[in-house]
Amino acid sequence: MRKGFAWLFSAIGIWLIGWNGYSYWQGLHATVPSTVTAQGKVFGTLTIPKLSLVLPIYEGTTEAELKKGVGHEPTSALPGEIGNAVLSGHRDTVFRKLGQVGIGDELVVETVDGQFVYVVKKVRIVSENDRTVLVNKPRPTLTVTTCYPFQFIGDAKQRYVLVAYLTSVHH
C-alpha cells in the first residue's frame, strides 16, 4: 500500500516538474517563429533594445498565448493606431528583466503594418485590480503590463506597468 502511494507521488511529482518545467522553458526561450502558421496567431514582435530582446506577440492574453510569448489585449488598439495598445507577459519568463526598462527607453513593435517605435514615458506599480491602466488614450500609446514583484511565486497582487508614447513609424 505504502509502496503504491510512494510510486503515485513520484509519478505526480515527475509529471508536475516535467510539464511545468517544459512550459517555463518555452517562455524563457520564446522566439519568433520563422513562418507564421494559420494556427499561431503571431501578429508581430516586441523588441526591447535595452535588454537585447525580441519577443513574439500573440493575439490574446490567456495562458495559451502568454505561455508562448507576449499577449496583445484583443479589445485594445493595434500598435501604431491612435489609442492604447496593451501588451502583457509573464513576469518570470518573457518579462523577467522588464524591471530594468525605465523612462526614456525604447520599445519597438513590428507588425505587417510597419515598425512602431515607442518611448517609455511613465513607469507605474499598481494593484492587480487597478482600473486606470486598460483605458482609452487620446494618442498612440503602448502599455506593457506584467506581475510585480518580479521574484514573487504565485499570483502577485500588483502589476508593473510601462506607459510609452509613439515617437516614430517606419513602413
Binding site: I17, N20, S23, T61, E128, D155
Partner: peptide, 21 residues
C-alpha cells in the same frame, strides 16, 4: 475600446507547480 477592465493575470503557474512537484 477599453473600459477600465481588469488586467490579465501575468503570474505564470510554472514555478509554483514545479515546487509542488
Amino acid at each position: 475600446t477599453l473600459y477600465g477592465q481588469k488586467m490579465a493575470n501575468t503570474a505564470s503557474p510554472y514555478v509554483a507547480n514545479m515546487l509542488w512537484g
